[in-house]
């Protein structure tokens, strides 16, 4: 039995320790905001925060997570009010939207480390795939979120 905190609530998970966190979130807990895109840590659609760090949950076995605090897109803010979410809405970033939970979680963690990011910082650290090609607006939204966080 493994205990993890998901968005503030303790969860007891009775599954083999090599089960990736992604499927625990989606299929066991029913939090479907975290998405499956590749399963091999390539695309970032499954990004969540584990103890504050952005991680690709398709490639994190739950066995390593006993006692860990997990934040998913559903727990980023109670009302879509995180500066990254507000910036995303203001820039109308999502198209199909399937990659965007992961993009937002990646950006939220990134901005904690880089509160005043340059384009080069963004290039080096935001590596999630967006098949709809929302990169132009996504970049603007990251800068906008950084400004909002400072204001």
């Amino acid at each position: 039995m493994i205990t993890i905190q998901v968005n503030g609530s303790p969860r007891q998970i009775d599954l083999e320790p090599d089960t990736p966190l992604l499927w625990v979130l989606r299929d066991v807990i029913g939090l479907t905001g975290t998405k499956f895109g590749c399963g091999i840590a390539q695309c970032g659609a499954c990004t969540v925060h584990i103890d504050g760090k952005p991680m690709r949950s398709c490639s994190v076995p739950i066995g390593a997570l006993n006692g860990a605090k997990v934040t998913t897109i559903e727990g980023l803010s109670p009302d879509n009010s995180h500066p990254v979410q507000r910036a995303w809405i203001a820039e109308d970033v999502p198209q199909c939207g399937y990659c965007q939970s992961g993009q937002i979680m990646a950006a939220a963690a990134f901005l904690k480390e880089f509160p005043s990011p340059t384009d080069a910082d963004i290039d080096a650290n935001i590596t999630n795939i967006c098949r709809c090609g929302t990169y132009e607006r996504l970049r603007r939204a990251i800068h906008r979120a950084a400004d909002m966080m400072k204001a």
């Binding site: 029913g30 479907t32 905001g33 897109i73 809405i89 109308d92 939207g97 937002i104």
Partner: peptide, 27 residues
């Protein structure tokens, strides 16, 4: 105008086919 679907695509609530949940469903 901003697209109507965007707000649900920033908080994880937008339901894709992948997100369907049916009682008793298997995988």
């Amino acid at each position: 105008l901003p697209r109507v679907d965007v707000v649900h695509k920033t908080d994880g609530s937008a339901k894709f086919g992948m997100d369907a949940q049916v009682p008793g469903m298997v995988f």
